[in-house]
C-alpha cells in the first residue's frame, strides 16, 4: 500500500529530517511510528499525502509515485489528521466542516449527505451536527478532525500524535476507534511517543531516531527492549518496566499488557511454590 524507497528529505533550511528510509506498509496493517521529538515522524507522515516530496528516493502510494500526483489526489487515498485539530475549523457547524471537504473532492450532493451522517455517527458526534466546532471539547475536536477525513473513505488513515493533550477516557475512545478502523480493513498509521497507548493497541512498531528507522517489529518485542528504547529516548511502558525488574526470578520480561503480565506472574509464582514444596 505504502512504499518508501530509500527516501531522504532535507528541509530548505538544510536540516536533514529523513535519511535513506526504506519501508513498506501493507494493506490493512496497523502501524505505530515511534521516536523522540525530531526523529522524523511528522516528516514521514507528510510524505504520505505528498505535502512533502522526497529530496531523493521515491514514495509510492498504492503503486503510484507521489511526485506525479497532487496533494488533493493523494489525499483521496491517504487521509492525514494532524496534531492540532483546530487548524482545520473555519465553518459555523460541525456538519458543514465535513461537507466542505467532500464537496471539495467532488462528491455529489446525495453522497455528501450520506457520508456526513455515516462519519459523524461513527465518531459519535451526530448530536453535535449543528454545533460550532469551536465549542466542542478537546476530545470531540479530535474526533471531528478524524470524521472530516474519514468521510471520503480513504484507504489509509494517518494520524500525527493523536493522543497529545487527550485525557484517559478520550484516549480509550480513540483506541477503540483506531481498532475498528483497522478491523474494517483500512491501513492505519499513527505517529506517537505515547508508549502506554501503543502498549494497549499492540500494533506493528516502526522505531525512528534522527531521521532513520532503527527498528521495525511487533510492539511486544520492541517495547520490551530496554536498551533499544533508551537509545531512542523512549520510556518503557510501565508493565514492561516492572517485569524487567523480576527477570532473575524467571518472570517473562517480554510482556506489555496488564492481563498477560498478571497471567504470567501468577503462573510463575505457582511454579516457584510448587518446586519449593517438591
Amino acid at each position: 500500500m505504502i512504499k518508501f524507497d530509500s527516501v531522504t528529505y532535507v528541509y530548505p533550511t538544510g536540516a536533514r529530517a529523513l535519511s535513506d528510509v526504506s519501508v513498506e506498509v501493507g494493506k490493512g496493517e496497523l502501524v505505530a511510528l515511534m521516536g523522540e521529538n525530531g526523529a522524523g515522524k511528522t516528516t514521514f507522515i507528510k510524505h504520505l499525502n505528498g505535502l512533502l516530496k522526497p529530496t531523493s528516493g521515491r514514495v509510492y502510494v498504492d503503486g503510484k509515485d507521489t511526485r506525479t500526483l497532487s496533494v488533493a489526489q493523494l489525499s483521496r487515498i491517504v487521509g492525514v489528521v494532524f496534531q492540532n485539530a483546530e487548524d482545520m475549523f473555519f465553518l459555523p457547524t460541525v456538519e458543514e466542516e465535513v461537507a466542505f471537504s467532500l464537496r471539495n473532492l467532488g462528491f455529489s450532493e446525495d453522497v455528501v449527505q450520506k457520508r456526513i451522517d455515516w462519519a459523524l455517527k461513527f465518531m459519535e458526534l451526530e448530536v453535535y451536527k449543528k454545533r460550532s466546532p469551536f465549542l466542542l471539547s478537546g476530545g470531540e475536536k479530535k474526533r471531528l478532525a478524524l470524521a472530516i477525513i474519514l468521510a471520503w473513505n480513504p484507504q489509509v488513515i494517518a494520524m500525527d500524535e493523536p493522543t497529545v493533550g487527550q485525557d484517559s477516557m478520550q484516549k480509550e475512545k480513540l483506541k477503540e476507534m483506531i481498532k475498528q478502523l483497522s478491523l474494517q480493513g483500512r491501513t492505519v498509521i499513527i505517529s506517537t511517543h505515547d508508549v502506554e497507548f501503543v502498549a494497549e493497541l499492540r500494533p506493528r512498531v516502526i522505531l525512528m531516531s534522527r531521521g532513520k528507522i532503527v527498528a521495525d517489529g511487533d510492539a511486544d518485542t520492541i517495547l520490551t527492549d530496554g536498551e533499544l528504547l533508551r537509545s531512542c529516548s523512549i520510556l518503557m511502558p510501565q508493565v514492561a518496566a516492572t517485569m524487567s525488574r523480576l527477570t532473575d526470578l524467571g518472570f517473562n520480561a517480554k510482556v506489555i499488557s496488564v492481563e498477560e503480565a498478571v497471567r504470567s506472574i501468577v503462573k510463575r509464582l505457582m511454579e516457584i511454590e510448587h518446586t519449593r514444596r517438591a
Binding site: 507528510k46 499525502n49 505535502l51 497532487s70 496533494v71 488533493a72 489525499s75 483521496r76 487521509g79 492525514v80 494532524f82 492540532n84 487548524d87 482545520m88 466542505f100 471537504s101 471539495n104 473532492l105 472530516i148 477525513i149 471520503w152
Partner: peptide
C-alpha cells in the same frame, strides 16, 4: 498543511 490535506488546492 492541514487544509491542503482535506483537498483544498
Amino acid at each position: 498543511d492541514a487544509q491542503r490535506s482535506r483537498g483544498i488546492e
